[in-house]
Write a protein that binds this DNA or RNA. Sequence first.
DNA 1: AATTAGCACTCTTCAGAGGAGAGTGCTAAC
DNA 2: GTTAGCACTCTCCTCTGAAGAGTGCTAATT
Lengths: 358, 358
Amino acid sequence: MPEHIPNTSDGVSSIELTERQQGVLRLIIHEYVSSGRPVGSKHLTEQYPIGVSSATIRNEMSELEQKGYVEHLHTSGGRVPTDAGYRYFVRNLMSDVEVPPGDQIMIRHQFKQMESQLEDWPELAASILAGIAGNVSVVTAPRAPITRLRHMELISLQSRLALLILVTLESTVRQLMLHLPDEATQEELSALADDLNMRLRGRSADELRFAIERPSALAATVIDQIESTLRMADAARQTPVRASGLENMLGQPGVENPDIQAVLDLAYGGGILHALLPRMETGSNLSVFIGDDQLPGELKRLGVIVSTYGVEGHVSGLLGVVGPTRMSYWRTISTVRYMSRLISDLVADLYPGPMEHE
Amino acid sequence: MPEHIPNTSDGVSSIELTERQQGVLRLIIHEYVSSGRPVGSKHLTEQYPIGVSSATIRNEMSELEQKGYVEHLHTSGGRVPTDAGYRYFVRNLMSDVEVPPGDQIMIRHQFKQMESQLEDWPELAASILAGIAGNVSVVTAPRAPITRLRHMELISLQSRLALLILVTLESTVRQLMLHLPDEATQEELSALADDLNMRLRGRSADELRFAIERPSALAATVIDQIESTLRMADAARQTPVRASGLENMLGQPGVENPDIQAVLDLAYGGGILHALLPRMETGSNLSVFIGDDQLPGELKRLGVIVSTYGVEGHVSGLLGVVGPTRMSYWRTISTVRYMSRLISDLVADLYPGPMEHE
DNA sequence: AATTAGCACTCTTCAGAGGAGAGTGCTAAC
DNA sequence: GTTAGCACTCTCCTCTGAAGAGTGCTAATT
C-alpha cells in the first residue's frame, strides 16, 4: 500500500537525522500533539526517561531546528514541530499502526446499520469517520467513469405529473419530478417503464437515443429527462460531498475561525475535491497533505488525509479527514485506511457482479 | 395566518408604551440589529431626524428600561434590546413585510431546480433558506402520520444480495440492501416485486402481514424488511433534519463558540425538533422563540423562527431559522413564511391526489 | 569528542495603573 | 413637557513591571 506525501519543496533530504534526533522529534511531536503546548527541553527530560540531560536535548533540538523540523515560536517558550517535521514523522517515524480493536468493532457495527439506510450512506460514513478520528471528515459519493442506467421506475403523482426514479449501475438512486406532455395513468406509465427498462438497461446518456426507433411523446419526454440526468451525473459538478464532524474542530486550540471558515467552504461546500484530486499521486491509495502551500485558502494551514475507495476501473470515490496540522496522524491515517477498505467492500457489493455485465 | 410567540413569563403586558416609546424601541432595535453596537441616546438623535433632544430620548429610554424592553450592559455604553424587547417588537411593531421581489425570484428559480434533484430536496431547501436569511436554517423531511407503502422495487446485485427500493405515499424514497434466503435471478425478483406491489400498495407496517396468505421464504424476507423500515420511519427517531448555513453564524459578533456548539448539536444533530415541537402552539403556523428560557442548552440565548409546512392531515414537516437574538426578524420571518408556502405546494404535488387515494 | 552544569538573556503572560471616550442620570432652566 | 449642562461611571486601550519558562553559550567534566 504505497503512500504519498507530496514533496513540497522543503529542500530537506530525509535521512540525515541520527537515531537520537529521530527519537527527540518523535517525542516532541507526541508531546505537542497531546498537550498542545510548545515543548521545552527541560520538560522533556522530566517527563520521559531519557538517559541524558536537558542540555543535550537542547543541542539536539537546535540541530532539528536548523534542519527545519521544529521551530521556535518565540525565543523562549519551547519548540513546536514544523510542517516539514510532521511530514518527516509520517514518512519515516510512524510504525504501521492498526486501528484499535475497540474502534474496529464500533466501525463495523455502524457499517452494518448503513445497509438499511442506503439512501445516504456517504453521510453516515462521514459521520462515523468524524467520530472516530475526532476531526472533520469528508466522503464523496462514488462515481463511475460513465454513468449507466440500470433501472427506472415511473410513479404517477397527478394526471400530468409523475415521479421518475433512476437507479444507476453503481446503485445510486436518483429521484425527480416529470411533467408529462399528456395525461397518463399509472398503468400506462408502468407499461412504458417495463418497456424502457428492457431497452435502456446498461446504457449511458449517449446511447439512449438509439435504443428506440419512434418513441411516443411520453417516451421521448422520459428519455430526455433520463439523458439529461445522466449527463449531469457525468459532468462531475454534481458529485455530492458529505462532510461531518465540524463540532470536533470547534473547540480545538490552535484552530482559528478563518480555518473553520475554510473547512466550511471547502469540505462542506464540496470544493475540496477539486483542490485535492490533481495533487494526489495516481499510483497511491492514500495521500497526506500537511500544511501544504499549494492547497487553496486557509487549508494550507491544516492537515488533510485522503484515501480513494472503490472498485478498480468501475466506481471510485474519496474519503478523508481534515484537521489542524497538530493532529494524531497515526490514529487518523490508520482509521482512514481501514474505512476505505470497508467502503470499497460495500461499493463492490452494490456494483453488479461480472455475470450481470453487458 | 396566526403567529405564536410563547408568553414566557415576562410579566409585562404589551400595550403600555406611548407612541414615541414604541418609535424609540423600533429605532434601537433597527440600529442595534444593523450595527451590532449598543446604541446611545446621542447617537440616535444624530443619526435620525427625531424632533427632540438626546435628553428626551434618554428619558424615554429609561422608561423602556424600567419596563424591561431594553437594558444596560454597563452603566455607560448605550442600550441593547432585551429578549422581551424583541418579542414586543415582533408582536406589535412589525408591519407585515413582504419578501423582496429579488429574493422571491431567486428562491423560485432555485426551487425549479429542486424538481430534478428530488432525492434530497430538504437539503437544497435548507441551503436556499440559509442563503437568503443569512443564518443557520433547518428543514425536516416531510412525515406522514402513518407511513404507507406506495411502491417497491427489487434489483439483483448478486445471487443472494439485492437492492430494495421503497417509495412511500409521500414520495420519500428509501433504499436498502437485502440479504436473500436463497439465490434468485432478476426475473424472479421482478415477478415478486410486481406481485407485492399489487397487494401491498397503500398499506402501513401493521397491515402488511395480512396481505399475503402463505408467503415464500423470499417474499417473507422482503415483507419483513419493508415492515421494519416503515416502522422505523414511524418511530420518528429517524426523521432526518437537514441544516445549512453555519458559515453565516460563524463570523457574527455576539455569537460565542458555545452557541455554535449548541447549534451544531441541536440543528445539525437533529435534536432541535424535539426541543421545539412541544412548544409550538397547535393552531398556529409560524412560531417565534426569542431567548426562550425553556429551550435546551445555549439555544435559550438564540432566536428561532419555525414554521410548519405540508398538507393538512397528511404530510407535514418543519422549517426554520436559528440565529442570534440580534437578527433581522422582519426579513427572516417573511422569508420563512414564504418558503413554507412554496414547500407546501411541492409536498402537495408529491402526495398523491384524491383520485389515487385508497 | 560528547555530555553536562551554570548563568545571562529573551520573550510571554499577567496584573495593575492611568487616560481617553462614550453614555448616562440628575438638576435646574426654559 | 422639554432641554442644557455637568458630574459620574464604566469600558477600552496602552503602558509598566515582575514572574516564569526556555534558550544559547561557555566552561568544566567524563
